[in-house]
Design a protein around this nucleic acid. Sequence first.
DNA 1: GTTACATGTAATAATAATAGTTACAATTAG
DNA 2: CTAATTGTAACTATTATTATTACATGTAAC
Lengths: 144, 144
Amino acid sequence: MSISSRFAVGIHILSLIEFNKDGVSSSEYLAASVNTNPALIRKIIGMLKKAGLVEVHPGIAGTKLAKELSDITLLDVYKAVNVVGDNELFSVHENPNPKCVVGRNIQDTIIPILATAQLALEKVLGNVTIEDVVKGIDDKENLK
Amino acid sequence: MSISSRFAVGIHILSLIEFNKDGVSSSEYLAASVNTNPALIRKIIGMLKKAGLVEVHPGIAGTKLAKELSDITLLDVYKAVNVVGDNELFSVHENPNPKCVVGRNIQDTIIPILATAQLALEKVLGNVTIEDVVKGIDDKENLK
DNA sequence: GTTACATGTAATAATAATAGTTACAATTAG
DNA sequence: CTAATTGTAACTATTATTATTACATGTAAC
């Protein structure tokens, strides 16, 4: 199965807050662009807030970025929205037979390999910032 | 969510066929080591067969490797068991609002980035072979 | 040919996560 | 106080996985 779109939605939200920095980014406003409902947006914003990426206060309309655009990487967002835990991108069958050479060693053998693969993926995400995404959106828009 | 354990089970199966190369690796035998039932093993073996990694024939007990150990990478297994399609590791929300700058450009902007991350992961898997896994299992076993 | 056994595959159920939705309490500004 | 917004909980629908049962199909041995 694939990684939850919460991640993509998180990127969308942060980018839109930047594009709308002179306006008020309420959950309703953001939901209209993502094309979902405000409650779902608030749930994701809650995660971004817990990770220190945005500032938002109960009762006060709007969410603001809590960091510079260039200081927020996609890895920050990916971790914030909890799509994948450390070393949990791959799942490994849980109870292989300990009476078998393969069964009693397979987990210890492949888990580090899978972790390396996961880290390679995360490293790519760590090298891209929301600033890059915002620029990418701008570039695509200007080509139209 | 995480990537199906079919992948880990596929690695387990191929490794065990090697360790048991002088014996008969029936679905029942393999299932006992993986600790699941034979039908599930046969389903996965069917996928490995379709990918040309193993040889197995209806009515005849046992599965054999169709390639050298060093010619089967974890990426081959990963693709064989269909856990993730090309460019489908990450899911992206489907109908962002085209009336918004972000909404109409977000997909084209982030999809290539996410694909790069996925490729980095797959590259790691492509550099590890079943031979490496088998050696790893042997090493761990000899330390006990 | 029939018997015994193995593979191939369909159907089903249980579980878990996602995505969407509604509802409402808590909080704040005016 | 009132209106508006955030923060959450509860619930549903959907989807994929994993496990399981059942049985048709294929092969070898007698």
